[in-house]
């Protein structure tokens, strides 16, 4: 299928000036190096990486506010920097830490302004606003000045503002940052629905692995400016195999358990954590035979550990 986002050998170097003025030295720093990927229409892709890995730099090149130093990039068939304004009419962008809304005015005013900004026909705008108001439950605070909104409400307002022109691609930079569990869930469910019903392509960066697990069938991990992984969630586990953990609750505190096929990594009173590297059934049987056990649970590695291993391994 034709890709809606295409990056090939994408790179960005910055020049940073260091030191006091008379002996200031200039140094070239690569924020992004040789990043290539394609995103097909309708995909939901998570773009992960530690702080400073190059996530935001990549996003800025995709949306046309930063010119790449190397490689090429196309979004919705356009070259972002050259066609920034035309591209802006076809994509929606939300920065979790920044807002496009008018701080002192009712949310409704900012949403009304987007009609002229994106030249949306009046009827289409009214219909989409009604839909978004319902799905994002904006009704109760449409008339409230933006500065008085909670972070979760403001985020929903920003999402609505980014979607009123029905963009094909939605780019989200940390859309759930700082939100409580209820707000996070609301945003995730909304994005899933948007993707399912409209086929909107979604690319999001996040540090919240709950976002990834709920939303993304595909993840890309960037580290040190290079793409360290690109594939399905399951593949992520395979590339950085993380051991499962056996949590053993003993009847009484004891010395660290010594058993073949596992290694005790942590002891806290009667509870011990064993990192499994052998057959779990055999280890459990052995532990139960050697000790008086109150409870045993087997824990799958969560995505956080997996990603941590990818970051740490480089």
């Amino acid at each position: 299928m034709e890709a809606v986002i295409e990056a090939e050998g994408l790179g960005k170097d910055y020049t940073v000036a260091e030191g006091p003025l008379p002996r200031r030295r200039r140094r070239r720093v690569s924020a992004v190096r040789d990043v290539s990927f394609r995103v097909a229409p309708g995909e939901v892709v998570g773009y992960l990486g530690p702080n400073g890995a190059g996530k935001s730099t990549t996003l800025k090149m995709l949306i046309g506010i930063l010119a790449p130093s190397a490689g090429r990039v196309r979004v919705a068939g356009l070259e972002p920097v050259r066609a920034r304004t035309r591209l802006a009419r076809r994509i929606g962008v939300v920065f979790g830490q920044r807002t496009t809304l008018w701080w002192d005015l009712p949310l409704r005013d900012s949403l009304a302004l987007t009609r002229h900004l994106y030249r949306v026909p009046r009827a289409d705008h009214a219909r989409r606003l009604a839909e978004l108001t319902e799905v994002l439950e904006l009704g109760p605070f449409l008339a409230t000045p933006v500065r008085q909104l909670s972070l979760g409400q403001r985020m929903r307002g920003d999402l609505a503002a980014a979607l009123l022109h029905a963009p094909e691609v939605l780019v989200l930079d940390e859309p759930t940052i700082g939100l409580d569990v209820v707000s996070k869930t609301a945003i995730r469910e909304f994005l899933l629905r948007l993707n399912a019903e409209r086929g909107t392509t979604i690319l999001l960066t996040t540090h919240d692995l709950g976002d990834v697990q709920r939303l993304c069938r595909r993840v890309m991990v960037i580290d040190g400016g290079r793409l360290a992984f690109d594939g399905g969630l399951a593949g992520l586990h395979a590339v950085a195999p993380s051991p499962r953990t056996l949590v053993v609750d003993l009847a009484a505190p004891a010395a660290p358990i010594a058993v073949a096929g596992a290694r005790t990594v942590r002891v806290e009173g009667p509870r011990q954590w064993l990192e499994l590297n052998g057959n779990p059934a055999r280890v459990i049987a052995q532990v139960a035979a050697d000790h008086e056990v109150a409870d045993i649970t087997l824990r799958e590695p969560d995505i956080e550990e997996v990603v941590h291993r990818i970051y740490a391994g480089r």
């Binding site: 800025k60 949306i63 046309g64 506010i65 920034r84 304004t85 035309r86 802006a88 009419r89 962008v93 920065f95 920044r98 807002t99 496009t100 900004l117 994106y118």
Partner: peptide, 12 residues
């Protein structure tokens, strides 16, 4: 602050 990114993203 970098918020100008939002301003550059508007088709205006």
């Amino acid at each position: 602050s970098g918020d100008v990114a939002v301003d550059l993203l508007r088709p205006a």
